[in-house]
Design a protein around this nucleic acid. Sequence first.
DNA 1: AAGTCGGGGTC
DNA 2: GACCCAGACTT
Length: 371
Amino acid sequence: MSRARPTPPPTADHDGFATQLLAWFDLHGRHDLPWQHPRSPYRVWLSEIMLQQTQVATVIAYFQRFVDGLPDLPALAAAPQEQVLALWSGLGYYARARNLHAAARACVERHGGELPRDLEALVALPGIGRSTAAAILSQAWGDRHAILDGNVKRVLARYHGVEGWPGAPKVEKRLWAFAEAHVADPALPDARMADYTQAQMDLGATLCTRSKPTCLLCPLRGACAAHRDGLTDSLPTPRPGKTLPRREAQLLWLEDAQGRILLQQRPSTGVWASLWTLPQADDATLAREWLATHADPDYDAGEALPSIAHAFSHFRLDLHPRRWRAVALRERVGDNGDLRWVPRTQLTALGIPAPIRKLLESSDATPADHD
DNA sequence: AAGTCGGGGTC
DNA sequence: GACCCAGACTT
């Protein structure tokens, strides 16, 4: 060792953690998730990517739609990016979709069209980190690897009484050490690695929840430090607070005489990268200039629609939509570059951010006669 | 170590 | 409103 550890190494590793957990899983775990039947490396991989920072209930419908359209790795690799983003549309964190796509193509080029059964090779693929790679290997093949996702962090922080925000590298390193120690327990059979990985996540998702954990039914309560010390409400330590900045933007909703909507593809970097949205301006003055440059109607003739408040992880965005109907674009503008007239029936084929799609679908296809 | 990247569920 | 969630990536 290059340096002395300030904290003692995990010693409470072979204490029945895995044994108790597996016994509970057999009776009370989730055995009917879509990616478990059938369970294949491709389906496990896809589910793990979709489940990054996203809850199971949200993922299920997206997973079904995605595997219906792209049922295996070669199909994903051969698909155009537009289709992949359309299937991901509404799920968020769109870099996951682009990385998934790129990783599939890398597997075709480097691994014979299959997902490699190797931790380092998986981590080398875009979008797959240490925990996701371990989850894939243990669930798809039963290989012996520790995972450390949000569920396991919460379970281990309570079970071992680990204080400090789990996102801090120092705390995360301790949690990894505990996770590895449990996996090294000889009482955990190789044949049960897939169940063991699933069991940890099921416990965290159904009993050891962030608020109001159901300790009465927990198979680990006998050795849980937080339960013993009355710290289940304060562990894991919450993330340090930060106030989010607020931004505003104007949305220009233009429809032509046929009811088609003018959409604009966003740049390949930044928020909503490569997705299709309404043309956007930072303020009303710039919105007026954009309209004067691209189309004929008077700005003030547009219908001001209710504002939309949308929260991102790192800022809040207030969108102010304004709508014009039966618009014609100026010469040399439209259906070129990043602008496209899109019929309403084609909206499902494009990757569109959730609040924009909700706005477009909330309104009548025909011009409103009210006033 | 901090910032970037969505959207929905929960309290 | 604030906080969280089957994280990874960039700087």
